[in-house]
Design a binder for these strands. Structure first.
Lengths: 99, 99
DNA sequence: TATATATTTAGACAATTATCTAAATGCAAA
DNA sequence: TTTGCATTTAGATAATTGTCTAAATATATA
């Protein structure tokens, strides 16, 4: 969870996740959405990848990034334990948090 | 969300939340669980309070802290939008995330 | 009031982080 | 092979953060 929260503790990185929610994008396409240099965005992508919130795949000259919902669901379970809904069941079985 | 993720980006603060999950505690009781000085814990409590993840109530000489599940549920909704379960309904109506 | 306890505030310092520019690497196409 | 594009790596710097000790504040009690 450490790397996950570290990755999420930055507005730009959270915005990158929102971008990828709509579909896979290359590093360049992602960088074009922000007023930061490409090395800066590359660094943000690296931190998101370390947290495994995203995965990268080399496609020839490009590198394509996409969301990794597995880690998102782990985070969801972590948050759920503090929720007022902690005792309630969530419809998808993957989300049942075990104490 | 900024202050929330900032508050969660520290193991000690996340451990404080876990402590409070079991019931309200005074600043001193919380501090006793950690090998940090009381001012350090006080600072952590301040950041959690800024994020409204916890609320404090003065009780005479003591200050009692407790979880604020309202913000936890907002966080849950934020995370849910990235989940593989984003399209599924969660049983408690408060958790339906609106795009 | 004087003293003791609970907690926070202030100020300092080392470590971490977000950003940049310049350089390196990897791949494609002329 | 040379050139050009896509991306990352390296190294620097200013800002932020987590921690500490010392001091201040607030409350309870003798």
């Amino acid at each position: 969870m450490n790397t996950v929260f570290k990755a999420l503790n930055d507005k730009t990185r959270r915005d990158i996740l929102e971008l990828l929610k709509e579909g896979d994008k290359t590093a360049g396409e992602i960088a074009d959405h922000f007023n930061f240099s490409k090395p800066t965005i590359s660094h943000h992508l690296d931190l998101l990848r370390q947290a495994e919130l995203i995965v990268s795949e080399k496609q020839g000259q490009f590198i394509s990034y996409s969301l990794n919902t597995t880690v998102v669901d782990e985070l969801l379970k972590w948050v759920l334990q503090f929720s007022s809904n902690a005792d309630k069941k969530v419809q998808n079985k993957n989300l049942n948090y075990e104490g």
